[in-house]
Design a binder for these strands. Structure first.
Length: 465
RNA sequence: CGGGGUGUAGCGCAGGUGGUAGCGCGCGUGGUUUGGGACCACGAGGCCCAGAGUUCGAAUCUCUGCACUCCGACCA
């Protein structure tokens, strides 16, 4: 994986059977294993959203051109990458329809109809869907023309409530990454240059991949009342005066699957965090030709299925083949059971992350497995965190920035004056973009790394996917 | 969208001085195996990316597309 990270990545996607290329440029077939992984991610996140009062809806996949154009910054941001439907059957359409690249405009159009009074607020909607962006270059999960995601769109009585929602949802994403994906993230705010088209402010969680490149893993936007004004959404407030509601949107996409691959994967393939792994324990019976082995292993599988996502492999592939196969697929725990184990009322448990083997009694096996899965999750997180720390460093001067950006992959911490010109210059001379203004600030120096004028903030810089 | 690379069996590749194709893995059947990618036998599988051109004849030569891929620029 160190020689050619890009090839390693696409090999893992293919060999672990997450996705295949399709006949459609830039679009992938998400295979059953990849789909099961996405479903687990989705169910986990969905429960977190619903616990906070959000409701799921389903919007149309088409946006009439006129609707898309209502908010100026928004259309300018997305116009270059939308797909247009111009014909219905043989008939040319009166008005072109774009295939949604994101659904702010559709939600606004609908909110206009259903929001009349402060009593109608807040509206906390979310949808799970796919969207299309006409990307120039694509890679499975990281950037595809059609991708899968959820987009939350909420409307609030006051600016403060909307700001609170924006921050709350960013925290939901960050907690999800840590608790379910074992991926450490940096929480922060995007600079104006990097913020979402039409947003007042954009918040982000940034993760660092194995190769030192950053991956934006979730994002949450505060819109103020910009869209509400553009779409003429108004409500009567508690003092019987007409107001514009305040809005947010937030999204996390199937791209996080890319983050999982590039955060935890190793030379043997994928390594999946137990919380979302389609198979948490794979049972490999040994010497199935010996009497009783298959029966005992099957019985064990049925028993464990009550507590874990478990699979038994009874194919006649060799044991060694199965070991390699499930390592490639990132299954967190392998359970081996053979004639010798059966005699001793035990089995062998092997961790995917460090291949550590332990003999476990069949009597309290559920506890042993649960503990190992917990330890594995923690170990994945600690390892990823340690690597991120190792690859995060500070620079104080422009020369140092250029030198390090070229030779040392990772997050680069540096002070910034707040000017767009400096961001553009750093992009040009060092090839780095601002990842975020982290909530956890630290003072490296008093002056901007680029222009030397007084600095406003410390930023994370880096090369991004 | 700019620069490079690659398109031949499911996958990885070879072949190519023009004469309709081969290897390894995988796949099917039968058998022997099974604690780190087992083995034997038989077998199936290809408009050689697409279109046009040159030619008696094109997988091979010439154009033109398209797809994938890597490196930039742009974006979740």
């Amino acid at each position: 994986m160190d020689e050619d990270f890009a090839k390693w990545y696409t090999d893992v996607v293919r060999k672990a059977e997450l996705a295949s290329y399709s006949g459609v440029r830039g679009c992938m077939v998400v295979r059953p294993y990849g789909t099961a992984l996405w479903e687990n991610i989705r169910n986990d996140l969905d429960a977190r959203f619903k616990a906070l009062g959000h409701e799921n809806v389903m919007m149309p996949m088409f946006i009439p051109e006129g609707l898309l154009q209502k908010e100026k910054d928004h259309v300018e941001g997305f116009a270059p990458e939308v797909a247009w439907v111009t014909h219905g059957g043989e008939e040319k359409l009166q008005e072109r329809l774009c295939v949604r690249p994101t659904s702010e405009t559709l939600f606004c159009d609908h909110y206009k109809d259903i929001i009349q009074s402060y009593k109608d607020l807040p509206k906390l909607y979310n949808q799970w869907c796919s969207v299309v962006r006409w990307e120039k270059t694509t890679r499975p999960f990281l950037r595809t023309m059609e991708f899968f995601w959820q987009e939350g769109h909420t409307m609030h009585e006051t600016a403060q409530q909307a700001i609170d929602e924006t921050e709350q949802m960013l925290n939901v994403y960050a907690d999800f990454c840590v608790e379910s994906l074992a991926i450490p993230v940096v929480k922060g705010k995007k600079t104006d240059k990097e913020k979402f088209a039409g947003a007042e402010s954009t918040y982000t969680i940034e993760a660092l991949m194995h190769d030192g490149k950053a991956l934006q893993s979730g994002t949450s936007h505060y819109f103020g009342d910009g869209f509400a004004r553009a779409f003429d959404i108004t409500f009567t407030d508690r003092n019987n005066t007409l107001q514009y509601p305040h809005q947010t949107s937030w999204g996390m996409s199937s791209r996080v699957i890319g983050a999982i691959i590039m955060t935890h994967g190793d030379n043997s393939g994928l390594v999946l965090p137990p919380a979302v792994a389609p198979v948490q324990v794979v049972i490999v019976p040994i010497a199935t030709h010996k009497p009783g082995v298959t029966e005992k292993a099957t019985e064990l599988c049925e028993r464990l299925a009550k507590s874990f996502r478990v699979k038994i492999d009874l194919t006649d592939n060799s044991a060694g083949w199965k070991f390699a196969e499930y390592e490639m697929k990132g299954v967190p725990l392998r359970l081996e059971i053979g004639p010798k184990d059966i005699e001793n009322n035990q089995c062998v448990l092997v961790r995917r992350d460090n291949r550590e083997k332990t003999f476990a009694s069949l009597d309290n096996l559920e506890e042993s497995i649960a503990a190992l899965l917990r330890h594995l999750h923690d170990a994945l997180y600690e390892k990823a965190l340690a690597r991120r720390e190792e690859m995060t460093y500070s620079v104080g001067s422009l020369d140092e920035m250029i030198e390090n950006a070229a030779n040392r992959p990772g997050f680069i911490k540096a002070m910034w004056c707040g000017e767009l010109a400096c961001e553009e210059k750093l992009k040009e001379v060092a090839g780095v973009t601002s990842r975020c203004i982290p909530f956890e600030q630290e003072k490296i120096s008093d002056v901007c790394v680029c222009c030397g004028k007084p600095a406003k903030n410390m930023l994370y810089w880096g090369k991004a996917y």
